[in-house]
Design a protein around this nucleic acid. Structure first.
Lengths: 111, 111
DNA sequence: TAGTCTTATCGTATATTTGCGATATAAGAT
DNA sequence: ATCTTATATCGCAAATATACGATAAGACTA
């Protein structure tokens, strides 16, 4: 785009949008599901489960990590990934707040 | 990208990702907040509140509508937009399910 | 030390998103 | 009928995202 306008919104709006963006790809949803089932996972196992090349999976993992949704630690020659529970909970409560706010007002929908 | 791979994931993963994608921009979060506060809103009011051109806001509204997050009805020369409550609730429950699933397993985080 | 295995990064091609101005459209007002 | 007002759409430019192969980096193994 010609100019970035994202900075002109509130920090909360940007945070929520960034979190949503990190989840805005089925591959990343699938990765989160795998991590949830196993509570930990090395990169290779995720690569085996997804229909994507190793480099692409690594890139998705990096995005999830940058967004703070997961943590990664080096374990010898491998990398172990886990859900970053705190960040997830923070997003959930913020999202629920927005959602609850919507619900409260929704008694007389017009269209 | 060279080839689309999104179709190779499950429908639920794609649905969740699409919903997240619709929320993955601060302008669209802001629009949803405005709609929540007023329970209905014409396009012009939203344009006044956002730091974006009218055509850009209209595009964001279109994306929210395409994703099913809002509904829009023509009201004379204006357009009235509202939250699509059912779609929002569906997403919330699916997201909560994923979240609860994560929570259940997270007693022994490794990293 | 050389070889292997695992993961990250680089380079590149292509697709999608974002944003705006200009223009079209549609309804009410004069 | 013409003008105004409100919104949608088109066309374009620039930024991002997606995907892959090739390659680098790091750590065990022989």
């Amino acid at each position: 785009m010609a100019i970035h306008k994202k900075e002109e919104f509130t920090q909360k709006e940007q945070d929520l949008a960034n979190f949503a963006k990190a989840m805005a790809h089925p591959a990343r949803i699938a990765i989160l599901k795998v991590l949830a089932q196993r509570n930990e996972c090395i990169c290779g196992e995720i690569v085996d489960l997804l229909p994507l090349a190793q480099s692409t999976v690594s890139q998705h993992l990096k995005e999830l990590k940058n967004a703070g949704l997961i943590t990664g630690t080096i374990d010898g020659p491998r990398s172990c990934y886990c859900i970053n529970w705190k960040a997830f909970e923070k997003f959930n409560s913020e999202f629920s707040f927005l959602f609850a706010h919507l619900k409260l007002k929704n008694e007389k929908a017009c269209c």
